[in-house]
Simulated assay, not measured.
Amino acid sequence: MRAAAITLTDIRMISASACLVGAAISLDMAWLHARSLEALGVICGRSAEVHCAWCPLAAVLLVTSLFLFGAGLRSRDRPRPSA
């Protein structure tokens, strides 16, 4: 019994899943950062505090995962060329 070769669609779907997990972790870290600054009476990105990178990272990873999921599903729908 041979294992099936990994296709580009499989790689896209695995990458999309990894990006989605990264987005969830980044969103959680952004929420924790915002809560810790709220305890100090400061809003992230306002006043002297620099904006953390967790929020933009979560957004970028979410958009990337959606793009990769869409590309993976689109390529899965295409018929394979006959050899």
Rank of each mutant, 00 (worst) to 15 (best):
T7N: 06
A23S: 15
D10S: 09
R80W: 08
R76T: 12
D28T: 05
I6E: 12
S65G: 15
W31V: 07
I43R: 10
V21F: 08
I11K: 10
L57C: 08
V63D: 05
I25K: 04
R46P: 00
S26A: 15
A30V: 01
C52D: 13
C52G: 10
S75F: 09
H33S: 12
A5N: 08
A59P: 00
A3R: 15
D28W: 10
A53E: 08
L62W: 07
L62T: 13
A34Y: 08
W54H: 12
T9N: 12
G72Y: 04
F67Y: 08
F69H: 08
R35K: 12
T9W: 04
L8M: 11
S17V: 06
F67K: 09
T7C: 03
C44Q: 08
E49W: 10
V21A: 14
L20P: 00
L66N: 03
A3N: 12
I43C: 01
V50A: 15
G72K: 01
S65Q: 04
C44H: 09
L20F: 03
A3Q: 14
R46D: 13
R12S: 12
G70N: 07
L66E: 02
S36Q: 10
R35P: 00
T9V: 15
A30Q: 05
G22K: 05
L61W: 00
D10Y: 04
G45E: 01
S15R: 14
W31A: 08
T7P: 02
L57S: 09
P56S: 03
D10E: 14
C19R: 07
S47Q: 11
G45R: 02
A3G: 14
I6C: 02
I11S: 09
S17Q: 13
R76W: 13
A39L: 15
A24L: 12
S36F: 09
A59R: 00
R76C: 10
R80K: 11
T9Y: 04
L57N: 05
A30D: 11
R35A: 09
C52S: 13
L20Q: 13
T7M: 04
S26F: 03
D10F: 06
F69R: 05
I43Y: 06
A59V: 01
L61C: 02
S17W: 07
C19Q: 07
S15T: 14
A39K: 11
A23T: 01
A34E: 13
A3W: 05
I11G: 01
A71P: 00
G70A: 14
L66V: 09
A3S: 13
A59W: 09
L62V: 02
G22R: 07
F69E: 07
R35V: 03
R46A: 10
V42S: 02
A30C: 02
L37Y: 03
L73R: 08
S17K: 11
A59Y: 07
L8W: 05
L27H: 02
I6N: 00
L27A: 11
W54Y: 15
S36I: 08
C19N: 05
G70L: 09
R12Q: 15
E38M: 06
V63W: 01
G72S: 06
